[in-house]
Design a protein around this nucleic acid. Structure first.
Length: 708
RNA sequence: GGGCGAUUAGCUCAGUUGGUAGAGCAGCGCAUUUACACUGCGAAGGUCGGGGGUUCGAAUCCCUCAUCGCCCACCA
């Protein structure tokens, strides 16, 4: 007679069991595919989106851990060479912003610090958060190969990034150019378009007399340098004026000579159809000025203050200056009217929400069009898939409209751009080895480029660096990877760039499938935010209900690509499920203490039940192969509870008590429990592994590596 | 300005290739020496946003209207 383990007499307690089990798995070495038992030919590789090493894991992290861990565990059990590559992200601008906030609280400022001191401080901060973050990944059950973990500032990463930078240069896909960039006056750096967001704002729209014209503007404070007046060439109202004609107009600080420019981008329907332009501080104006080879002059400095060109207004903050300038123009009789109902979209820094001040700056740009075309063509040819169709459409749309990418950042926390700038002619030269001394163009003295890379420039090469591109063993074995699973909101930031860089450097898309998940919201579908106070910490939920329950709460019924709600009540339901599994196990073990494994045949009815289970299992397997985790998880939950517990156990119960075809019933219960534990394991790894200890046969390995 | 999506039970959401609807939570009735009250049994609850079309058959495909949301974009 076998004994029922004592532990099963108590309700299931996840907190007691989970940490120890994780350690057992980790110590087994099976997270590393090199140690996996049995012959495994095919690789299944997932590169983990490296969490930012600047804080605690949030619900979105818990979701990706759940999805990716389910996939990895399933494929590992299914005989694949399963590799999940973890990492941690220095997260350039993101982390610098976090650290600057910390400095502010301490009454310090990055602008009073030496470059190297600031870098050192952020590095220490990041490294200490890194191990904290890794502990949280372990709590969530992530079965990733820690021996291959990579940090985004590791030497290998930098080497690859530099090589790519150099290759782009050689291939003519890199240039340093004076362009209009998104300048954040608070963070004192340029930002890519993706790092700006847009808000609708209602601002007064002023009409001013400008010589014979009336011009419209919302930004009078930029108007000091406006010596060009632009209208559409076909606008009949202004046909008496010729392109290039010069007129003298009375303006803010006295008369100026203005030149008439006819340009087709001027919209005759907008305002009066006439505008003056400020090429240094507006993208549209910059393009017009470029087209006609016009002078450009900086009016506003990097901190948002007016330069000497503003005369009496010099040194004023543009916010305060606007009203004063309007006042002055009005006193000179130049204000025609003000439209107070005008509303428009303005760009703001996505971190501090300060208005972006466009500035002309020399920055490094990557020419995107050829890279994007290659990506779209690979998609057309079916070289990779994007789940869902919706995201594929969005991906195509973005690729079709992609603009050159500003990869220069004026921040310390990042990978330095390996280049030199000429003091005399301001030209930039790629210099990986750091050996260039004088300007190739004018012979002037060179100085080190002070800017760092946009963090996504290096992240975009992450599947390459983690697998050891170009000649590492892992690269041959594990690249291209199986699936990139990440948040839909970094489709452009990250996924698109990985596709492009992968194709550019290896001629292969770095992953066969792209699986995008939506935002994790609170129980009522509200976006989580500190200010709303509705942030749900996945670690706290895990502490309360167990990680297995959290994982089920995150995956059941949550369709790919769609925003989902995390409801602690729902997680509670899966805590009950864990207990249900626990108790069913106790029952099965209690009723089979006298059962000896033998060739006992099933009765016809028991065989049918078993066959019906195989149908369910195959269905779940197919769901897992096709990323329908939300359905697979629901099906195993439903089968275990409704079919196995409520129906099969209940009906076999009396047969065992009354000793009617008892051994067939016992065999069915044991086999179904065993097989369900296998199927449940990817979803609820902890409780299943714990129970497995008491169910497994002598030769069985731990459930982690038991064959599906 | 351009693009994408949503609308299904009181709430939050699933519904894989078209075969007349499911889960969790909430709520209702019954059961307490039961493997499990972190339970069981039962019942209730939806004209799948409105309208039109295709089809033997539509929550699912097409058109249209309404409402809500998201993303991209150089701010006259």
């Amino acid at each position: 007679m076998k004994q029922v383990p004592e532990k099963l007499l108590q309700p299931y307690n996840a907190q007691e069991i989970e940490p120890g089990l994780y350690k057992t798995w980790e110590d087994s070495g099976y997270f590393n595919p090199d140690n996996l038992p049995g012959e495994r030919k095919e690789a299944f590789t997932v590169v983990m989106p490296p969490p930012n090493a600047n804080g605690s894991l949030h619900a979105g992290h818990a979701l990706f851990v759940t999805i990716q861990d389910i996939l990895i565990r399933y494929h590992r059990m299914n005989g694949k060479n399963a590799l999940w590559l973890p990492g941690s992200d220095h997260a350039g601008f993101e982390t610098q912003v976090v650290y600057e906030k910390k400095l502010e609280k301490e009454g310090r400022s990055r602008f009073d610090m030496k470059r190297e001191d600031l870098y050192k401080e952020i590095l220490d901060f990041t490294l200490s958060n890194k191990s904290f973050m890794e502990g949280q990944l372990r709590q969530l059950g992530a079965s990733c190969d820690w021996s291959r973990s990579l940090f985004t500032l590791d030497e290998r990463v930098i080497k690859t990034v530099y090589n790519t930078f150099s290759k782009l240069n050689e291939d003519g896909l890199l240039y340093r150019g004076k362009r209009i960039v998104n300048w954040c006056p608070k963070h004192q750096t340029s930002l890519s378009n993706l790092e700006t967001s847009h808000v609708t704002r209602k601002d007064p729209f002023y009409y001013f007399k400008y010589g014979p014209f009336t011009i419209g503007t919302v930004r009078p404070e930029t108007k000091f340098g406006d010596k060009y007046v632009v209208m559409h060439p076909d606008d009949a109202r202004y046909k008496e004026f010729a392109h290039g004609q010069k007129i003298t107009v009375e303006w803010i600080n006295g008369p100026i000579e203005a030149t008439i420019i006819k340009d087709e981008t001027s919209d005759p329907e907008f305002g009066t159809g006439v505008m003056t332009i400020t090429p240094w501080h507006s993208g549209v104006d910059f393009d017009i000025a470029k087209r006609h080879n016009l002078d450009m002059e900086q009016i506003i400095d990097e901190r948002g203050k007016l330069l000497p060109v503003a005369g009496e207004f010099a040194g004023m903050n543009i916010k305060d200056a606007r009203a004063k300038i309007v006042e002055k123009l009005e006193s000179k009789g130049l204000l025609v009217k003000t439209d107070t109902e005008y509303s428009h979209e303005v760009s703001v820094c996505y971190k501090c929400e300060r208005e972006i001040e466009p500035q002309v700056k020399a920055q490094w740009f990557v020419t995107m069009k050829p890279l994007a075309e290659k990506a779209v063509s690979a998609l057309d040819k079916g070289e990779f898939r994007i789940l869902t169709d919706q995201h594929e459409k969005v991906f195509r749309h973005w690729m079709g409209n992609v603009q050159d990418w500003n990869i220069s950042r004026q921040i310390v926390w990042g990978i330095p751009i390996p280049a030199k700038i000429c003091d005399a002619c301001d030209k930039g030269f790629v210099d990986i080895a750091g050996e260039k001394a004088s300007c190739e163009s004018c012979g002037g003295q060179l100085r080190q480029e002070a800017d760092t890379f946009d963090t996504w420039f290096s992240s975009g090469q992450w599947p390459l660096t983690t697998t050891g591109f170009p000649d590492g063993d892992d690269f041959k074995k594990f690249y291209p990877t199986a699936v990139m699973e990440t948040a839909a909101d970094i489709l452009f930031f990250w996924v698109a760039r990985m596709v492009m860089f992968g194709l550019y450097l290896t001629n292969e898309v770095p992953f066969k499938d792209i699986y995008l998940h939506g935002l994790v919201r609170d129980a009522h579908g509200k976006k989580m935010s500190k200010s709303k106070g509705n942030v749900i910490s996945p670690l706290e939920v895990s502490n309360e209900y167990g990680t297995d329950a959290l994982r089920m709460g995150l995956i059941v019924n949550n369709a790919p690509g769609v925003d989902m709600n995390l409801d602690p009540k729902k997680v509670g339901a899966y805590k009950k499920f864990a207990n249900k599994i626990w108790n069913a196990t106790r029952f099965v073990l209690e009723k089979t203490t006298d059962y000896e494994e033998s060739d006992t045949a099933f009765t016809k009815e028991d065989q049918e039940l078993y066959d019906a289970w195989i149908v369910v299992k195959n269905d779940i397997t197919s769901d897992l192969e096709n990323y329908r985790l939300h359905l697979a998880s629901e099906k195993i939950y439903d089968y275990f509870w409704k079919t196995f517990c409520d129906s099969i156990i209940e009906t076999r119960k009396t047969r065992i008590l009354e000793d009617k075809e008892k051994t067939s019933a016992q065999k069915l219960l044991l086999i179904l429990l065993r097989e369900q534990l296998i199927v449940l394991h990817p979803f609820m790894p902890f409780i299943t592994e714990e129970i497995w200890k008491d169910i497994k046969r002598e030769d069985d390995e731990m459930l982690l590596v038991t064959r599906w």
